Amino acid sequence: MIELHGLTKKFAQDKGLFDVSFTVEPGTVFGFIGPNGAGKSTAIRHLMGLLQPDSGNATIGGYNCWSSSPEVKKLVGYLPGEISFPSDLTGDDILTLTRRMDTTSSEREKELLTLFPLDTKVKVRKMSKGMKQKLAIIRCFMKDAPVYLLDEPTSGLDPLMQERFLELVLREKEAGKAILMSSHHFPEMEKTCDYAALIRNGRIVVADSIDSLIASSQKMYHVEFVTAQAAHQFSEIMHGKLMGTRVDVSVSTTDELNTFLQTLAAFRVTSFRSAPADLETVFIHYYAEEESV
């Protein structure tokens, strides 16, 4: 449903997007992960037909996002990373405009207002960041679209609203929607995404299923040895880090657990524990690797 093929847009030396390709199928959530300025929002703007690529293409539902932008916009619910509503309009005004622009359901609108309550009589200029974000979410999902492009969607939301938003995304996924979500919040990506791509300096570093990314990531182990000598020897073998007590070693490795334990078996150990692998660990591993190149 969402496809990028070799998408390239160069703004300056090493700034922009370079040969970016990925696909988002119906009924899946695709996570787009990267630091500020990595190119996430630029890719989403291409999908919305707001930018013309230098080469490659972006399509939604088979329509070219640049040359068939009106057709694409009919298929998409869009939540931009920077919320910019006219300051003199009220929440009601924004929702009224949405009803005029798109095909919406009053029942769906009421449900969204129940999930993300706010005073729609308030003018935008008097709204907090969280209120504006809730208004933007309601406006985006009022349109029962087959595709959603979500750029930092939980920014400014409190934990309860974040959890409700994730439940909404999962429900939309179950309904067969194709969802692209950019975020810095790793736990929410793990809860919702089927696949993810890590992008840095406009280039895809790695793309795979969430489960595969986590399974292939470096594992972190903390080991306490009987003697400082043993700790030092093990640290040298595994390129670990000696901790303050001099008998504790922290090790990051991609070795399978059995391989790691075989090495560890040669030493007398007081305690051993492992830190759970997660998406943040994957992010740190790949970005640290890139920085060292």
Rank of each mutant, 00 (worst) to 15 (best):
Y286V: 05
F272A: 15
S217P: 00
T259G: 07
H232D: 14
L242K: 04
T270K: 11
I199T: 08
T253I: 02
L242P: 02
L257V: 14
A215E: 11
D255N: 09
V249K: 01
E256I: 05
S216D: 10
Q218A: 08
V269F: 04
K241L: 08
F225Q: 00
V269M: 02
N201D: 13
Q262K: 11
I204H: 07
S235L: 01
A275L: 13
T263V: 15
V247K: 06
I214G: 01
E236W: 15
G244P: 01
I237H: 07
K219G: 07
R246C: 02
L279D: 03
F267Y: 13
S235Y: 08
L257D: 13
S274T: 08
G244R: 11
T281F: 12
M238Q: 13
L198W: 04
Q262G: 13
Q218G: 10
F267E: 03
Q262T: 11
A215I: 15
T263R: 09
S274K: 11
T281R: 10
Y286A: 00
D248H: 09
S217V: 02
I204F: 08
V247F: 02
A275E: 15
T281K: 10
H232I: 13
S209T: 06
G202C: 02
I199L: 04
A230L: 05
V205E: 11
A228W: 12
A231G: 12
T270C: 08
D211N: 04
A197R: 00
L257R: 14
Q262I: 06
F283G: 05
Q233D: 15
R203M: 01
Q229P: 09
D255M: 10
S250R: 10
I210N: 03
A197F: 03
G202N: 07
V251Y: 00
R203S: 06
I210Q: 05
F260V: 09
V269Q: 09
L257W: 00
D208P: 07
A228R: 10
V206C: 05
K241T: 14
L261K: 13
D255Y: 05
E256N: 14
A275V: 10
D248W: 00
K241N: 13
I284D: 04
S235M: 03
L213V: 03
S212G: 15
S212H: 07
F260C: 05
G240Q: 03
